[in-house]
């Protein structure tokens, strides 16, 4: 196992990236740990701990900024979690390298979809000027602040989004990852949720998935708390910083950052598949 002074900055960097882009971060951390010689069976729990810690650290800031749509997150997490159970149960039927290639192509495709879109779908509206930022009770709509303006939004294509989340969940269960790199593009590109809201909401939901995974790993005795503590200290700091960076990013910039990260993840997956 690498020393704490190596694990801590790795946790910081991946959690920062994860909470800015709503991508989790385990998908970056686990391959890096494996490259450093960590047994994949020990690297996976460290990745999950990083995601859980990053999600916890980012939560107060993102909630306070009104960027998290908890109703949407809870609703979408039900099919995603159910899909993850199915994926975990049938995990052996798909070759790991085939799966990695498939995920790589999905990530690059999602990056392309986000990067090639011009302009903003959800525009500021003076009608909603008095609205506090946040979700509207009883609905899948809400508003967030963009500078001094208020941007209203409403999730579209909800049935398609729920279906896509089953797919994202199955991928999560098959690959043992949080699936944030699928969930954020589904919310922003398919359901037309603003990219910053999608990223913050996914950061909330991947924390739920990670907590369930961590409970399983812990019951199996696969959690190295000393190495995990180094990753968690770094990830708590990274999640905090990531939430600050994300709240200051313009939606267009956030979309470019997420697309760049998705390309990086996609290439990493394609390269690591034998």
């Amino acid at each position: 196992m690498p020393a704490a002074w190596i694990l801590l900055p790795l946790g910081l960097g991946t959690a920062l990236v994860g909470s800015v882009g709503g991508l989790g971060g385990a998908i970056l951390l686990v391959p890096l740990l494996v490259v450093l010689g960590v047994d994949p069976r020990l690297a996976a729990p460290l990745g999950i701990m990083s995601v859980a810690a990053g999600s916890l650290a980012a939560a107060p800031r993102q909630l306070g900024d009104g960027l998290v749509h908890q109703r949407l997150g809870v609703l979408l997490e039900i099919p995603a979690s159910a899909g993850a159970i199915v994926g975990a149960l049938v995990g052996n039927v798909i070759d790991a390298d085939v799966l990695a290639r498939l995920l790589g192509i999905v990530a690059i495709g999602a990056a392309f979809a986000g990067a090639t879109r011009k302009g903003m779908r959800n525009l500021p509206s003076p009608t909603f000027g008095a609205e506090p930022a946040g979700e509207w009770p009883g609905t899948l709509g809400g508003s967030y602040h963009l500078g001094d303006e208020v941007v209203p939004y409403s999730a579209r294509r909800v049935p398609a989004g729920l279906g896509a989340m089953i797919g994202a969940g199955i991928i999560s269960g098959l690959a043992g990852i949080g699936g944030g790199f699928v969930k954020t593009p589904v919310m922003s590109e398919l359901m037309h949720v603003p990219v910053k809201v999608a990223a913050a909401t996914t950061t909330f939901t991947v924390g739920i998935t990670a907590a369930a995974g961590l409970a399983v790993f812990s019951s199996q005795g696969r959690v190295d708390t000393h190495a995990g503590a180094a990753v968690v200290v770094g990830s708590l700091a990274g999640g905090l910083l990531g939430a600050r960076v994300q709240s200051r990013l313009h939606p267009q910039a956030a979309r470019w950052v997420i697309s760049g990260l998705l390309v990086g993840i996609g290439v990493l997956l394609l390269v690591t598949a034998r």
Binding site: A52, L56, G207, A211, L214, S218, V232
Partner: peptide, 9 residues
């Protein structure tokens, strides 16, 4: 630490 990370969500 593990209990907090599991319990928070």
């Amino acid at each position: 630490m593990v209990a907090v990370l599991v319990g928070a969500p």
